[in-house]
Amino acid sequence: MTTPTATSPLASPPDAVAARADAPAALDIRAVSYSYPGTTRPALEAINLRLEPGTRLGILGPNGGGKTTLLRLVLGLLKPQTGEIRVFGRTPREARRESLIGYVPQRAEIEAGFPLSVRQVVTLGATHAASAWRPLKPAQRDAVEKAIDLVDAREFADRPIGKLSGGQTQRVLIARALAASPRMLLLDEPTVGIDIAGQRRFAELLGRIHTNLGLTVVVVSHSVRTMATGCDMVACLRGRLHSHTAPAGLTPQLLAELFSHDVEGLFGGADVVVATPTGQQGHAHVHGEACDHGHEHHNAHDHCQPPTTP
């Protein structure tokens, strides 16, 4: 068994990232708080989160819940006022420098009408730090082509990025992230503006990437559907990290409690198919509250297992 490295994950076997006891966590967030300048209410408060390599985590929360702030902290684009973050044992800045994180932005952040082909965009992921004199190395070219194949973008690889549909653009952005050979994929609201069929295809793609490359995947979204179909674990965030749970724990009641939110709106008025790839069951509960099973949860990470039947 091999552990994926920053240079070879596209070639890694599916089970390559099984966590070793002595291996650092893929993501380790300890007591992190952050407030934007000029604001009194912290955007994030006392966040604790440990993510083992190879896990698929969804971070679910309402708008203004701190999802993007957390993401920027993990990327090292913001510095926490308290606490610390480690990505595979490195600081976020080091992780960025070593291309350990593959970031997939919201589709809207891409400049529409940019005169680059899909292949050129994906190539940027592999060569942005390369010397100006050096042409593309064979290994980089190989990584680019493999990433294009992995996201099924071969048929439109020479088309301009501005001429693609939302779903296609999303796939290209994932390919660009994969071309940098990261160990963790970080996706920001990946299904915004994509129809339900596209969201399903996206979940399949994420599953395929996970199976083929064994990457750690963190998806930040306010879409329950995205969480339910593509993640092993879901963390609910609204300033504080309220819970970790398997997607099965995302009941409308829980969401209503956690987010004081229009649950119908969150679910998009559609049925939610809850998939639990690991078969893990569980419920999450508001900090300090008792659950249906009579347990009281005091820790934000408390994970309630249903009582075993005698």
Binding site: L77, Y103, H128
Partner: peptide, 23 residues
Amino acid sequence: LWWMRRPLLFWALDETSAAAFGV
């Protein structure tokens, strides 16, 4: 511009991603 074409294009296409990738 030729010397910096790779980071420049990445930055121009998508600034947040460019920063996240280490540009």
